[in-house]
Design a protein around this nucleic acid. Structure first.
Length: 424
RNA sequence: GUGAGUGUAGCUCAGUCAGGUUAGAGCACCAGGUUGUGGCCCUGGUGGUCGGGGGUUCAAGUCCCCUCACUCACCCCA
């Protein structure tokens, strides 16, 4: 029995799974470039207070999901549970707003939340995300949404649903909240246990309950969308207009609620019907109050975060094309000491000429070496033994055609470079 | 944190209901069939404290308890 296993909710990524991840990473980087978002990276741990004051002290994430610890100086630190607060902290700390009025940034990395793991939900998981800080333009909300959908489509995902909503601003949300409380006043006893708790703390969340009876009850509950202030309503209208011009389909979700405190106005979620319970591939929205909340001058912003493992799951379910592991081009099979020394020299030369190559380090029979070459799917196998050494030549076998010919040992490398280039 | 289901070879799984020789198959891996040539085929081999611990029994992969992990769902969210 293995003494130490990967911790609950963490995952080893094996060689076969890497190509697909790399592809995703490459797609993200490429698309971000086209939309002019620049990459940044922030530390994996921060002062605990950063998340308490941005994500929100009352949120599930901060209340019970953070990996928080004291360092030797007695400071409370936390492994980042999400990417937005660190990015905003960086934006403020390095006065990025002074360098450019609008900063468009993206990141990709591991996040940590101590939840109960299930399909599409890990304790260490990976997110990429974009944050556009400095503009209130609804067109920017649309760009951020378009960017995320563009990435998903480039990866081959087809069955996606964009859920759109608005949760207002500090101006219009409190009055709406009162309205909602009024609506539930005579229904309190009919709510499920969870919702009764929500009633005290965050009544908006009742709208998000999946309990069928709560659902039915909230059907004709007032929606935030009907109580938006003029500013928020106009913003929402303009965003929808922009999405229409971009031919982006969306579904208005009158009860879309986010679990993070900093959202204002626009909220959205991209959902895959392939996925089951954890079906949100990504989500985001506007957070016009966060920068000020963290001590800088008021600055509007909008962004999204996406779950890499969830996207990977969805790609698998939709049979998206996945890149193959790459194979070396040449295998050098050799017998006897002298030939093996020659093989090592040849390998070195090939590699400096940018040709991937490998050989046998297990002192196996020629037959085994040929099998190894076959499993590696190489294009050519070079065979060097005593006979060849005597002649000063080596055999070069084309693995597909099974044709092989003798080549002067001195010319081996140049010969292989030449034939491999012809093939391409 | 709660509920249900599942843990047998590197992988996919038989065997568990009705306890009883030395725990099996396919794939993968290794070797041989050709004393120097891959794929297909044939033969053989390596590999398991049956998730872990405890209990019942003459006897436990099989029954009971605990524990850990995974899966699904609640919850939450990416």
């Amino acid at each position: 029995m293995l003494k130490y296993k990967a911790l609950r909710g963490t995952q080893d990524i094996l060689p076969e799974e890497m190509p697909l991840r790399r592809q995703l990473e490459e797609t993200v980087g490429r698309k971000m470039k086209f939309y002019n978002y620049l990459e940044i990276a922030t530390p994996t741990f921060e002062h605990t207070g950063l998340f308490v004051h941005s994500t929100g002290a009352d949120t599930e994430i901060v209340e019970k999901q953070m990996y928080t610890f004291l360092d030797k100086g007695g400071r409370s630190l936390t492994l980042r549970p999400e990417g937005t607060p660190p990015v905003v902290r960086t934006y403020i700390e390095h006065s990025l707003g002074m360098k450019k009025p609008l900063q468009k940034l993206f990141y990709s990395g591991a996040m940590y939340r101590q939840e109960n793991p299930q399909a599409g939900r890990l304790r260490q998981f990976h997110q990429f995300g974009a944050e556009a800080i400095g503009s209130i333009a609804p067109a920017l909300d649309a760009e951020v949404i378009a960017l995320f959908l563009d990435i998903c489509e480039d990866l081959g995902l087809k069955e996606l649903s964009l859920q759109l909503g608005s949760i207002g601003c500090p101006g219009c949300r409190p009055p709406y909240r009162e309205k909602l409380l009024g609506f539930f006043a005579d229904k309190y006893d009919l709510l499920c246990a969870n919702c009764r708790e929500r009633h005290q703390r965050n009544p908006l969340r009742i709208l998000d309950c999946k309990n069928p009876s709560c659902r039915r009850m909230t059907e004709d509950a007032p929606s935030m969308l009907d109580y938006l202030c003029d500013d928020c309503a106009r913003h929402f209208q303009e965003l929808k207009a922009h999405l229409n011009t971009l031919d982006i389909e969306y579904r208005i979700n009158r009860r879309l609620v986010r679990g993070l405190d900093y959202y204002t106005k626009t909220v959205f979620e991209v959902v895959s019907p392939q996925l089951g319970a954890q079906d949100a591939l990504g989500g985001g929205g506007r957070y016009d109050g966060l920068i000020e909340e963290l001590g800088a001058k008021p600055t509007p912003a909008v962004g999204f975060a996406a779950g890499i493992e969830r996207i990977l799951l969805a790609m698998e379910k939709e049979d998206c094309p996945s890149p193959e592991l790459c194979h070396p081009k040449v295998y050098v099979a050799s017998m006897e000491e002298e030939a093996k020394r020659l093989a090592v020299r040849l390998l070195q030369k090939l590699r400096t000429k940018m040709i991937s190559a490998d050989t046998d380090y297990l002192d196996r029979s020629l037959k085994s070496q040929m099998r190894a070459a076959n499993n590696l799917k190489v294009v050519y196998t070079v065979i060097i033994g005593q006979e060849e050494l005597n002649k000063g030549k080596a055999l070069v076998r084309n693995m597909e055609s099974s044709q092989q010919e003798e080549v002067e040992i001195e010319n081996l490398c140049d010969y292989l470079v030449q034939v491999l280039n012809q093939n391409q």
